[in-house]
Design a protein around this nucleic acid. Structure first.
Lengths: 170, 170
DNA sequence: TTTTTAAGTCAGCCTTGTTGACATTCCAAG
DNA sequence: CTTGGAATGTCAACAAGGCTGACTTAAAAA
């Protein structure tokens, strides 16, 4: 069942990986894997007053300190009302700081406080631990393929988001 | 907590794919890709009275016709109350049929009606189209790696679910 | 000056998850 | 036969986290 002899892309047989059966396996793999992917942070957050939405906000603020609300909105793909509810609690609890923009005073630039960074660490440590185990078990070539397929699966807008985030510090 | 040089696997350099930076890229890839993964069915369902939960139920009933409520519960990882709310509407709307078990009459075996199968087709066609495009763009080797990493990322329970589903008709 | 933009807020709604309590049905063990 | 436990279903209440719509404020842009 293995023909990684690499495709000239003709030969027809190398397209067996595009059967509906193969596609469905991939779909179910995504479903079950995503559950694992979120399981550890969810467990940690379950004890607190926060949820997955807070985790996502914290992640991307940590990823791009000083990002604006609008940026974050687009990255997360939610409405400002949804995001605002999350940010309000994070700011009130002292995990996120919101600074008025210097150039454009309408904008608010978001930063993690030391407490916010501490929570971010806890959450991403847990998530990375699972990721690291999976990567190690699968090996570097599988990881490369993993990322290639995921990128191809994104909406174009999201792919741009993803790639622009990578530029920042690669 | 990061050992990046790391010995065991000789050469050391082959472990560069396990850096925190690489892991974070993988995490974000999962996040953005999952959005794409669910986008098409969500769009279709947005117009109706159904949501993602209905899609998942329909998918796995189609995948394993005659499965019991308890089986489905475990596969989906939700409570029976959550699933019941979804199943009730699907049954009421004539998309799913619930048959009392013959051997054990406490069990209800679930099947899609022709209408249910029609909706399943619409949804999975959309999802498979994206998957197919991604697979085609990435190539068979990347796809193999993709599935390998996803399997390694699942919780053991979910991996068993995933693999047992594969056995049924491979 | 007027219009547009960024952000925040309030109110209300929906889906989908959760617990807890309880009824029904039925198998199986005592 | 009786009873305990398992599988299912149902009701109620609640929470997270999406959404839309309407409105305000402040500041930038035209």
């Amino acid at each position: 069942m293995e023909e990684r002899g690499h495709p000239g892309l003709h030969s027809g047989e190398s397209l067996l990986f595009l059967t509906d059966e193969q596609l469905r396996k991939g779909i179910e793999a995504m479903f079950f894997a995503y559950r694992g992917f979120t399981a550890d942070p969810d467990r940690i957050l379950g004890g607190m007053e926060y949820g997955r939405a807070h985790h996502r906000a914290i992640h991307f603020i940590n990823r791009s300190p000083g990002t604006t609300v609008n940026n974050l909105l687009n990255t997360l793909g939610v409405t400002k009302q949804s995001l605002n509810r999350v940010l309000r609690t994070l700011i009130a609890d002292g995990l996120v700081e919101s600074r008025v923009g210097e150039k454009d005073k309408r904008e608010r630039h978001l930063f993690l406080t030391p407490e916010g960074e501490a929570l971010e660490q806890r959450l991403s440590d847990a998530q990375r631990a699972r990721m690291r185990a999976a990567y190690r078990a699968a090996g570097p070539e599988a990881v490369a393929g993993f990322r290639t397929v995921l990128e191809a699966m994104m909406d174009p807008d999201m792919r741009r988001q993803y790639l622009s985030l990578r530029e920042e510090n690669t």
